[in-house]
């Protein structure tokens, strides 16, 4: 038996909107510690890892570990029927081939339930090693989204270079080139407006902008984004989800042949 009650149901709506175009089908794993997902895009270039810790739910019951295969497009269609202020409860019985989403309006005057068919998904679970990253940049998520959107009008790839001076986003295309430098800026009024660079070694890596732009759909989940870079690893683009957990996007770099 599984029963997870999320008072801030909009978080789950936002999570789905941020991953449904990247990943078609995924297994949601439920254990006593939380509700999680790990899935790659169909090209195996990007990976998304989601964690919603059990403590973040108002009610969390998961009698035994469960893996529920869901089509994210269909899940998104159902969650879109929930109001932004609704409380969302996810329910499933052991061995059932369906999951139920229940939506309660804040005043309890409207209660809906949607039952969705589960699917068998044969997906490989990857072990993501703990790593020390050479450069970690934290910046306003809206600023990062703006940069990715702006650069994708000019080129297909972005070179992200971190030095002590700042982080540089560069692209080149048929019409010309673009460079955007964000300097470390910790003297702002609000901490979420700061750009903070923690660098042990300078790093410069190239990534497909199409994926970066897709990741920025998670911008509504967090005011800040953390970009972790190392020359031998995929970049990690992380959005914290309130007090509950995170959504992390991993993207393999493009390498000069």
């Amino acid at each position: 038996m599984l029963e997870l009650r999320l008072v801030q149901g909009s978080l789950l709506k936002k999570v789905l909107e941020s991953i449904k175009d990247l990943v078609n089908d995924a297994n949601f794993d439920c254990s006593s510690s939380g509700f999680s997902l790990q899935a790659m895009d169909s090209s195996h270039v990007a990976l998304v890892a989601l964690l919603l810790r059990s403590e973040g739910f108002e009610h969390y019951r998961c009698d035994r570990n469960m893996s529920m295969g869901m089509n994210l497009g269909n899940m998104s269609k159902m969650l879109r029927c929930a109001g932004n202020d609704d409380i969302i409860t996810i329910k499933a019985d052991d061995g059932s081939d369906t999951v139920t989403f229940m939506f309660e309006s804040p005043t309890q005057d409207k209660i809906s339930d949607f039952e969705m068919k589960l699917m068998d998904i044969d997906s490989e679970h990857l072990g993501i090693p703990e790593a020390e990253y050479q450069s970690i940049v934290t910046m306003p998520s809206a600023e990062f989204a703006r940069i990715c959107k702006d650069l994708s009008g000019i080129g297909d790839t972005v070179v992200i270079s971190v030095t002590k001076e700042g982080v540089k986003f560069s692209t080149r295309g048929d019409i010309g080139t673009a460079n955007i430098v964000c300097r470390q800026n910790t003297t702002v009024d609000k901490p979420e407006e700061a750009t903070v660079i923690n660098m042990s070694e300078p790093v410069s890596l190239t990534f497909a902008l199409r994926y970066m732009n897709s990741f920025t759909k998670a911008t509504t989940l967090s005011n800040t984004v953390t970009i972790s870079l190392s020359s031998e690893l995929p970049v990690v683009v992380e959005y914290k989800i309130a007090e509950m957990g995170y959504i992390r996007f991993y993207l393999a770099p493009k390498i000069e042949e």
């Binding site: 990857l126 690893l233 393999a252 493009k254």
Partner: peptide, 14 residues
């Protein structure tokens, strides 16, 4: 020309 790497080249399956 750049070669797009894959995630599985960095992370192993369990």
């Amino acid at each position: 020309q750049c070669l797009q790497k894959k995630i599985v080249e960095y992370f192993d399956g369990d």
